[in-house]
């Protein structure tokens, strides 16, 4: 029997700030589906933002998908590949990027899990604990997409796009 890859789906953002909570809500909804399907090789994590200790968390996985709200020029959602070297040119803050975390995993633990970032388009960022209707539509599309990929993990790499700035 083929060994299932250890997958981590990691949503981040502040659910108290409207669409910034897309990553967190995504994980909550995905958990229900995983439980209903008795899928055991997928671990879920969520937090307000990524931080340095996440390097240790991802170093123990084969495949990682970070999920975050996005204000980029995308229609609804998209998947990009996370490359470790990106961290060299970004500036550091308490909240760090997925590429930074991957770079730390490489440098500290010699681990380089296959890592992706799922961008879900958000629109409003006020002090409310609810997603906008448009963001919810995007969320559901992204959920359907990720469920298919989880059932066929080798397909992640076939659905990567590049975001035009």
């Amino acid at each position: 029997m083929q060994l299932q890859p250890k997958i981590l789906i990691y949503g981040y953002g502040n659910p108290g700030r409207q669409d910034d909570g897309l990553g967190s809500v995504f994980v909550d909804l995905l958990k229900k589906w995983l439980d209903s399907k008795s899928i055991e090789n997928v671990e879920l994590e969520n937090d307000y933002q990524l931080n340095i200790e996440d390097a240790l968390t991802i170093s123990e996985k084969d495949l990682v998908v970070f999920v975050d709200a996005s204000i980029e020029n995308i229609d609804d959602y998209c998947l990009t590949r996370v490359e470790a070297e990106d961290s060299k040119i970004e500036f550091s803050m308490h909240a760090v990027s997925a590429s930074f975390i991957l770079d730390m995993s490489n440098q500290l633990y010699d681990k380089d899990p296959e890592t992706y970032l799922l961008h879900i388009k958000g629109y409003e960022w006020d002090y409310k604990e609810e997603l906008t209707n448009k963001a919810t539509i995007n969320l559901n599309k992204a959920l359907d997409f990720i469920k298919k990929r989880i059932l066929d993990p080798l397909s992640f790499k076939d659905h990567v796009i590049e975001i035009m700035e």
Binding site: G13, N14, I71, F91, A95
Partner: peptide, 15 residues
């Protein structure tokens, strides 16, 4: 310093 800005959506923090 920590500013009252808790949204960290992608693309929001250029230098």
């Amino acid at each position: 310093p920590c500013l009252s800005c808790a949204t960290h959506a992608l693309g929001k923090m250029p230098l």
